[in-house]
Design a protein around this nucleic acid. Structure first.
Length: 578
RNA sequence: GGUCCCGUGGUGAAGUCUGGAGUUCACGCCGGCCUGUCAAGCCGGAGGUCGCGGGUUCAAAUCCCGUCGGGACCGCCA
């Protein structure tokens, strides 16, 4: 049916009789006996010259046969890859007609996203989506080749698994054969890949679909894809090295440039300097410690465990309105308030709270922040966690560059804390998952529970994240492979032996029979592809994504189901909550 | 659970703050003209329950309340 692709024809084909197939991107009629039809397929456009085009409309599907010929010199289109040639004396076969489309394909970038989603099959015809989906496939291919060449074995793991209460909210599937029971869809293949290690797979990988029933964001969908990997007889350095190679391979195949060695930063440094465990290191505006400056302050608001500030260069012209807005936002993030200081000439400052600070303190702030005339400084004082959290978000709000600027700044964040907080009952909450190996040097602190629970928060884990331009690409850890230590952790977490057996018994049992030391990682392919595509939303690299409320404007999922289906599953719906 | 923004012919925008006739612009669509265009051009035309519901008012796209849909974010995402 087809001899050539539209976009691949070139001057070298001049004289050939070709048949191309595709969609009508544009029709330009010049009277009854001359018309130009731009035909589009996934490779690009080619202009076809036909003598009669009156029945042809936009998005009709055509097979066009004709002779490739050079365009007259004065009609060459430099903006078109195939602009030097055209298909002349073309005969047209209409393969399929089209109603007028709800939006013009070449203007999809301007229309409401809902409309694109409702007619995603049209949106997929755009250059943008064609490029993004093909780029995603290229990334997947590069990752597969990379993992294969590093001797990893692809193993598929089940989609219907047992629900475990830890972690994200599960998507759940009712069982027909065992009415009243449910499968869960995997949040990740975590436990299975560890079982693979016990099973002697040695090096496992999978491009795995994962499902989490949590609220959606620009970088989060219910369903997403990860490169999931796990390796035996390996530590965190080994894992990071393997993943770095895979990431470099994937990046290179898209950009043509191989990223250099990925730098590392400890979690504590990330939090202290950037107020985030996924710092965007494309720009400065680091958090600066000001506790010393206000050590003896009379200003009650600054009598807090942690006082830090950031400086927005040239921000002195920020309007009062905007500052009020920022203050409100900071309060929304949990701050008690937001202090700002505008720096004028000769060290003069403008700040609503200047009168509460001594001259020494003001001078100290300006010095610590390297503030110059025309800058504005923001200060937050609170508990350490809250201070860095609020300033970290403020830093992004004020300084974050657009997604496609500043290149690709990969970063390892290491030494995450093992626990993120302490429950009211004194038991700690795991920061990663309960199978994460504590830092060797900190294992002795595990016994601290009874004398000083707060001490537990200082325990570092052998968990690490990979960050790209402020997006968390993925995380991993060295796993606990000894039952005794695992039981100690469970105990600490307030999970008794019975409970542990019920939830993770299969893993615990597996560890009875010779578990190799192992470690692993997983990173999100949607996020990686989006960033490599300069897209600020992963929906742009997903063929059929969900809206922020989790529905699909195209299929209208989720839908009600037939009462007979419910009955078969042994389910009955509660009346709607009013 | 919360904060903020958006919803106007098929599409995109303006109009909303400061109420006064569905008004305007561009693209698309339909018809006509047109033999070298490529954002083709020229002439003509059709097309709207201003998301939905309620309220205020002599009068609502515009003000108020609610609701639905979409988006960004906080919480959440071990």
């Amino acid at each position: 049916m087809r001899t050539d692709y539209c976009g691949r024809l070139s001057s070298e084909d001049i004289g050939r009789t070709v048949t191309v197939c595709g969609w009508v991107a544009k029709r330009r009629e010049h009277g009854e006996f001359l018309a130009f039809v731009d035909l589009r397929d996934h490779t690009g456009l080619i202009q076809c010259v036909v003598d009669h085009a009156h029945e042809i409309r936009s998005e009709y599907v055509l097979a066009v046969t004709g002779v490739v010929r050079p365009r007259p010199d004065d009609t060459i289109n430099a903006d078109l890859a195939t602009g030097e040639i055209e298909i002349g004396d073309a005969s047209v076969k209409i393969l399929s007609q089209s109603d007028p489309v709800p939006f013009q394909i070449d203007r999809a970038g301007e229309v409401d996203e809902t409309l694109r989603m409702r007619h995603r099959y049209l949106d997929l015809r755009t250059q943008r989506m064609q490029t993004n989906l093909r780029r995603r496939a290229v990334v997947n291919g590069a990752i597969r080749r990379s993992m294969e060449s590093q001797e990893f074995l692809e193993v598929e793991t089940p989609m219907l698994i047992a629900s475990t209460p830890e972690g994200a909210r599960d998507f759940v599937v009712p069982s027909r054969l065992h009415a009243g029971t449910f499968y869960a869809l995997p949040q990740s293949p975590q436990l299975f890949k560890q079982l693979c290690m016990v099973g002697g797979i040695d090096r496992y990988y999978q491009i795995a679909r994962c499902m989490r029933d949590e609220d959606l964001r620009a970088d989060r969908q219910f369903e997403f894809s990860q490169l999931d990997m796990e390796m035996s007889f390996a530590d965190g350095d080994d894992v990071r090295e393997i993943v770095s190679v895979a990431i470099a391979d994937a990046t290179e195949v898209v950009t043509g440039e191989r990223p250099g060695l990925i730098p590392s930063m400890t979690w504590l440094d990330a939090m202290n300097n950037y107020g985030s465990d996924k710092p965007d290191i494309r720009f400065g505006m680091q958090l600066t410690e000001l506790s010393e400056v206000f050590a003896q302050t009379d200003f009650n608001a600054f009598k807090a465990p942690s006082v830090k500030g950031i400086r927005l260069p040239g921000g002195g012209d920020t309007t009062r309105n905007r500052l009020d807005q920022l203050t409100d936002r900071a309060k929304g993030w949990g701050a008690k308030g937001l202090v700002w200081i505008k720096v004028g000439a000769n060290g003069e400052v403008n700040s609503p709270v200047a009168k509460f600070m001594s001259e020494t303190e003001i001078a100290g702030v300006l010095k610590a922040l390297d503030a110059e005339e025309g800058d504005i400084c923001f200060i937050v004082a609170d508990k350490w966690r809250r201070t860095v959290h609020v300033l970290g978000l403020l830093r992004l709000e004020l300084g974050r560059p657009p997604v496609n600027e500043g290149g690709y700044n990969f970063l390892w964040v290491t030494d995450f804390p093992l626990f993120e907080s302490i429950n009211e009952d004194g038991s700690p909450v795991p920061a990663h998952h309960p199978f994460t190996m504590p830092h060797e040097e900190d294992i002795s602190l595990l016994n601290a529970k009874h004398d000083d629970p707060e001490k537990l928060l200082e325990i570092r884990s052998q968990a690490y994240d990979l960050v790209l331009n402020g997006w968390e690409l993925g995380s991993g850890s060295v796993r606990i492979h000894k039952r005794e230590l695992q039981q100690q952790i469970f105990e600490l977490l307030g999970i008794n032996e019975e409970e542990a057996q019920a939830k993770f018994g299969f893993l615990m049992n597996a560890f009875r029979y010779g578990a190799p030391p192992h470690a692993g990682f997983a990173f999100g392919i949607d996020r990686l592809t989006a960033l490599l595509s300069g897209e600020e939303n992963i929906r742009e690299v997903i063929a059929f994504p969900k809206s922020q409320s989790g529905s699909d404007p195209l299929t209208e999922a989720p839908t009600e189901i037939d009462p007979a289906q419910l009955k078969e599953l042994g389910l009955r719906l509660l009346p709607p909550v009013t």
